[in-house]
Design a protein around this nucleic acid. Sequence first.
DNA 1: ACCTCAAACTTAATATCATTCAGTTCTCGG
DNA 2: CCGAGAACTGAATGATATTAAGTTTGAGGT
Lengths: 210, 210
Amino acid sequence: MARPRKEQELDIPRRAVEETIRLLTQQGDFGVPLTAVAQAVGCTAPALYGHFRNKNALLRAARDEGFGRLYNEKFAVFEQMRGDPLGYLRDGSYAYARFALENPTLYRLMFSPPPKLGVSDDPWSSEAGRQVLSLLLTGLRSSQEHGYLPGADLQRYGFMFWSTIHGAVSLNIQDRLLDHAAKWDSTQSVIDALMEIIAATGPAKHPITS
Amino acid sequence: MARPRKEQELDIPRRAVEETIRLLTQQGDFGVPLTAVAQAVGCTAPALYGHFRNKNALLRAARDEGFGRLYNEKFAVFEQMRGDPLGYLRDGSYAYARFALENPTLYRLMFSPPPKLGVSDDPWSSEAGRQVLSLLLTGLRSSQEHGYLPGADLQRYGFMFWSTIHGAVSLNIQDRLLDHAAKWDSTQSVIDALMEIIAATGPAKHPITS
DNA sequence: ACCTCAAACTTAATATCATTCAGTTCTCGG
DNA sequence: CCGAGAACTGAATGATATTAAGTTTGAGGT
């Protein structure tokens, strides 16, 4: 048997990405053998080379899929929260953190990929990250229009905001001693502190002026 | 030739770690062949197994060395800045960021190690990270004694502070399109914003009350 | 219906490493 | 001066990624 019959055709590109993410998650490591992916898909390793230039290309595709999923989750929250910019910033951050803590290996592939992946070679990959960032910036701009962060440089604060949350989930993902609940509490605490700081700059219900 | 003569004895453990870090830095990737390390040291690959259980153990040792170097740099700043807690927070953060941006691959090995390294298996490795954090906490406690961050939960703010800086350097390291100067500016901006926020909570020279 | 060809795989072959094995040569305590 | 063990070396093993060569199938032209 060499070429498969039409009935048993399988969408290798899609299934390969899907199974790669599943195995990545399961093994908790990028070092998933191509043969394992191939077996899960139902073909042999060399067959994958007809759809991806090499293993790195497959991992890049999995990474892009990860960005897509993250964006979708954040976007869902975004639409749900129209008119409540601070609420979006909070719940959008929760969604981001939940995604990271529930898919730690995929998150690491997205934001701490081994340089040999050649990630910067294709503009799309960093572009996907930029879309997530732009969603955050929109939230911040909207918050500013509602009176928060008066006069702040949004580009600057946006990056800081993202850094804080990315840093929190990264450090929590890395700490193998904490259980899932503890990681979530720790991350949530950071997000809440961030929200308190932003809320304090706005039209105060409980004025801060002393 | 099998066993080396006494004259040509070389301190394999130390040199191996040293060369591993050098090659790591040079190749920008953890995938440094053991044979390359061995060649740089001046022995063969199997010889390394007399000093490290396996390649992961060697990488763990390199990681620990990285934590040691980072701690030393931060500690030097700490001693230089006695009596100026805010100055220590700022310069200590600069030192941290400089270390990360100048040793991106080593930094990634320290804070985003591949899980298969078995990092959490030995308590020492996460302990080293904890020492760096404790230095930060000391700075925050000292700042609080000087009137900043009144009533704040230092454990909580310490983690947030660290998250922000770690996040900023991580994101900057990852962005292959930025040059070194741009990364440094971006990181410094985050640190400065953080310092402004902390300074604003203290005995204000330029009161914020409106 | 038949022939040819390119597509889409498969199996076999190659190369690169990590790791283990089986020596080989020093050094040192007696 | 001898014997044992330390400290290596070179060759063997095994896992993977990647490439090469070979095989079957579907489609289009006749």
